[in-house]
C-alpha cells in the first residue's frame, strides 16, 4: 500500500524535524565522558548484545 508508506515516511520526517533541534541542544549541553566512564556503558551493552544473540539462537 503506497499511501501507508507515504504516511510512515511523513511520520518519520516529522519525528526527525521535532528531534533535530532538541538533539543539537542535547549534544551541545551533554557533559564530556571522563576516562573510564565508557567502560561502564560498553560492558552492559555487550551483555545485551550477547543476550539477544542467545535469544535468536533459541527460536
Amino acid at each position: 500500500m503506497d499511501w501507508m508508506k507515504i504516511l510512515s515516511a511523513l511520520f518519520i520526517i516529522a519525528m526527525i524535524a521535532w528531534l533535530w533541534p532538541r538533539a543539537r541542544r542535547m549534544m551541545e549541553d551533554s557533559r564530556k565522558a571522563e576516562p573510564g566512564e565508557w567502560g561502564g556503558v560498553l560492558l552492559p551493552l555487550a551483555a545485551v548484545a550477547g543476550f539477544v544473540v542467545l535469544l535468536i539462537m533459541m527460536v
Binding site: M15, A23, M27, S30, K32, E37
Partner: peptide
C-alpha cells in the same frame, strides 16, 4: 553511576536510525 554523558550520543544515534 552517572550516565549523563550519554545523552548526546543517544539522540544522535536515534536521529541516524530515523
Amino acid at each position: 553511576k552517572d550516565f549523563s554523558f550519554l545523552g548526546g550520543f543517544l539522540v544522535a544515534g536515534l536521529l541516524m536510525v530515523l
